[in-house]
Design a protein around this nucleic acid. Structure first.
Lengths: 275, 275
DNA sequence: GGAGCGCTGTATCGTATATTACGTATTTTG
DNA sequence: CAAAATACGTAATATACGATACAGCGCTCC
């Protein structure tokens, strides 16, 4: 079993000599940040010498200082990624198998939006609402429905919105219609599809601006994308969740609609009269 | 004023060249941990060279890489000390139109699940996991992507799952394949589509069990449905939100998968060996 | 009170890391 | 279409960091 560094310390602090104990206490007091700094800074904060810090690390069972830092970073990563594991409120009122799924999904959404700035969204909205170019949407095996969902809405409020469906050869041929003023919205989460990557690369070469919806591990398409939206997908299920991306998509749809209204687009007024 | 690194990035990402933008996106996607690693690791993760990382850091106004890391560590320290400060989005203190949208969506989901009993979900799961009958899925103008999404997953873990697409006349003809043991999953939110209502009615007459995903005002199809899932759809947008229904769909997908695993379905084991 | 052991700090070394210089490719502009 | 400017990566360099050897000091136990 792999214990956390904090557990290791409380386990062995009793057997440590005075200097190393000071190091341990300093680390616990500023856990874990002081451990991410250099040996020199750590030792200064603890009021001991550098070798004492290294002996302290060795006593915990770590091979060397970088390994110690990696361990701390991994802990931190796990902690930051799942705010659900915050020690505040572990008790969930009802314990059916449903609740964890919902909780994880809600957390995913908060996390996803936390990493998303207004500026970034505004840039994407501006591009999508720019009626000088065409908008193409496509998705992978499981995410293509998201592309369809978005296309279904965007196609109503503006012309020249196309969802790319069917066989690879079919949408490859549509590349001929794409140019610098156009936008390609791609949904691609693990496992990333080669066909989409190839498609994105070619589109990129033609100067098409790519907006990528992907997971936190970033599809290789991020390489070609002008804008990347990284959604959290981890849920207690055999499948990854696209719910966070779905909500981002809905947010964009709403924002683009508002933008076009603000631009006083004739089309919007005509639509309202049609309803 | 001292801005956070994340703010700095979203502020200037627009003016960055491609390589640095990739660095920025990689950092945002794994914020802030990747920035605490070495330049070499950071550059590898972003798929660019070390100098590009350093140029990226320089563009943010930091003197050198260690200073950049210190800035990130300071942020992290502040964040860890006051968990309350885990607010949604530091760069949108207020009414960027994003936050209300997200909040409303999260509320919708909680409300939707509050009105959904475990029993009800379990019944639906049992029916969907019952391999003696066929499963058909269909949706309306905006919700058909949800039907596709669900079908894409269910079709993998069990045979006889069909998404009904295309023209009304096409899927009307499929009614001939439907009988008492079969399930029809319908997505229908305002404005309810007559074609779907007619279709549901006929299916119901043939003894097909209907699972309906609708909004809180209930599509007329509820009249024929064996199970009704009413999702909240109200958001501050010109459009209704299907996000709550999407999450219910994902929950069901996960639960059905677990159920089939528990049933020891050969197909699941075969799938795992294929992966 | 003296000898032995263990803990700690100083000083030095080797190495991994950040940094810089430079050449090539790519894009932009006239 | 040509020419300039910008961006990017390779490779060399300098620095700073972690690691180690060794000596001094205090403590404990005969």
């Amino acid at each position: 079993m792999i214990s956390s560094i904090a557990e290791l310390i409380s386990d062995r602090i009793g057997t440590m000599p005075a200097g190393e104990r000071r190091a341990a206490q300093t680390l616990i007091a500023n856990y874990p940040l002081i451990g991410l700094k250099t040996v020199a800074e750590f030792s200064a904060a603890a009021g001991v010498s550098s070798p004492t810090i290294l002996r302290f690390v060795a006593r915990l069972g770590l091979q060397n200082y970088p390994e110690f830092q990696s361990a701390l970073q991994d802990e931190l990563a796990a902690q930051l990624q799942s705010p659900a594991s915050r020690t505040l409120n572990p008790s969930s009122p009802n314990g059916g198998a449903v609740s964890p799924m919902l909780e994880a999904t809600l957390d995913n959404m908060r996390e996803t939006f936390r990493h998303l700035s207004d500026k970034q969204l505004a840039d994407i909205v501006a591009k999508l609402a720019d009626r000088r170019g065409k908008t193409f949407l496509i998705g992978g095996r499981f995410t293509d429905p998201l592309a369809r969902y978005m296309a279904a809405h965007l196609a109503i409020i503006q012309p020249n919105v196309f969802h790319l469906a069917g066989q690879e050869s079919v949408w490859r041929d549509r590349l001929i219609d794409m140019g610098k003023r156009d936008v390609l919205v791609i949904f691609d989460i693990r496992r990333y599809q080669d066909s989409l990557v190839r498609f994105a690369e070619t589109a990129h070469q033609r100067g098409v601006q790519i907006v990528l919806f992907t997971d936190q591990w970033l599809s290789p398409i991020a390489r070609f994308a002008r804008h990347v939206i990284a959604g959290r997908t981890a849920v207690p299920s055999a499948w990854d969740s696209s719910a966070a991306l779905f909500v981002v998509a809905e947010t964009l749809i709403g924002a683009v609609t508002r933008q076009l209204e603000a631009d006083g687009a004739k089309r919007i007024r005509e639509l309202e009269s049609l309803r």
